[in-house]
């Protein structure tokens, strides 16, 4: 058994992934959330299905001992993309869609900035709404594991072509391109497209497999306007 993927942040949360012989790679192994106590303290299921506090969770590497369970996989099962060009009279429309489906992401943004316990730093609004119940320290469990599936409208191009009966100047096409136009996802953290989906145990530019980053640079939306002149 080896572990990969340091979660980082306060509280020494350790690694998010375990690779066992004979099992898939990219597997999140972690605690299973069992609810909060009335005081807002975490409880987790042990291997017998009993809700216990964190200190009673066995994090053994041995599968017959550990209370940690397979709680997700960070590698998408399906990669889809669709590129199509439609023409109607003098209009042309190109749409490029891209999607990654069926994978899990550890929402470290919520883990660190959606918990008001013990900090005076900046917090997400969700710390006082969705996560208001938490009155305890940072924890890694399936509580913060979300589906990262998304569909992205990567690029749309709309053009219109004027034709001229002139031997030197035959046509003029004006077009507009929009990139990164829409993201459809249920994931509540950053753009899931930016989360690594390969490279277990390898950090690339501060990003690692399946673990959202706490300091992302937001993706930009770009528009390009242009003309094509046909001589």
């Amino acid at each position: 058994m080896r572990t990969f993927g340091g979660i980082g942040g306060a509280g020494d949360l350790g690694d998010a992934f375990r690779t066992y012989e004979g099992r898939n790679i990219g597997e999140f192994w972690g605690k299973r959330f069992a609810g909060f106590t009335p005081e807002g303290k975490w409880t987790f299921f042990n291997k017998n299905g009993v809700a216990v506090p964190n200190a009673q969770i066995n994090t053994s590497p041995f599968r017959d001992q550990t209370d940690l369970a397979l709680i997700g996989n960070a590698i998408p099962k399906y990669y889809l993309s669709l590129g199509n060009t439609f023409t109607y009279k003098k209009f042309d429309l190109t749409i490029f869609l891209r999607s990654k489906l069926d994978f899990d992401v550890l929402n470290t943004v919520a883990l660190s900035y959606g918990n008001k316990f013990g900090t005076q730093g900046n917090l997400l609004n969700s710390a006082f709404t969705k996560y208001a119940e938490i009155n305890d320290t940072y924890m890694y469990s399936d509580y913060y594991l979300e589906s990262g599936s998304f569909l992205k409208v990567d690029e749309v191009t709309l053009g219109y072509t004027f034709k001229f009966n002139d031997k030197a100047f035959r046509s003029l096409r004006v077009y507009a391109v929009g990139q990164n136009l829409a993201l459809l996802t249920g994931y509540s953290g950053n753009d899931p497209d930016l989360i690594q989906d390969t490279g277990l145990g390898q950090e690339i530019n501060g990003r690692s497999l399946g673990i959202d980053t706490r300091s992302p640079y937001p993706t930009t939306r770009q528009f390009v306007f242009g003309v094509n002149v046909g001589f």
């Binding site: 306060a10 509280g11 964190n54 918990n115 940072y138 924890m139």
Partner: peptide, 17 residues
């Protein structure tokens, strides 16, 4: 454990208790 720091997988509590 001090606020968001020091839970460290519960290992300090297991030693203490």
């Amino acid at each position: 454990t001090k606020g968001r720091h020091g839970e460290d997988g519960g290992k300090w509590k297991r030693l203490h208790y």
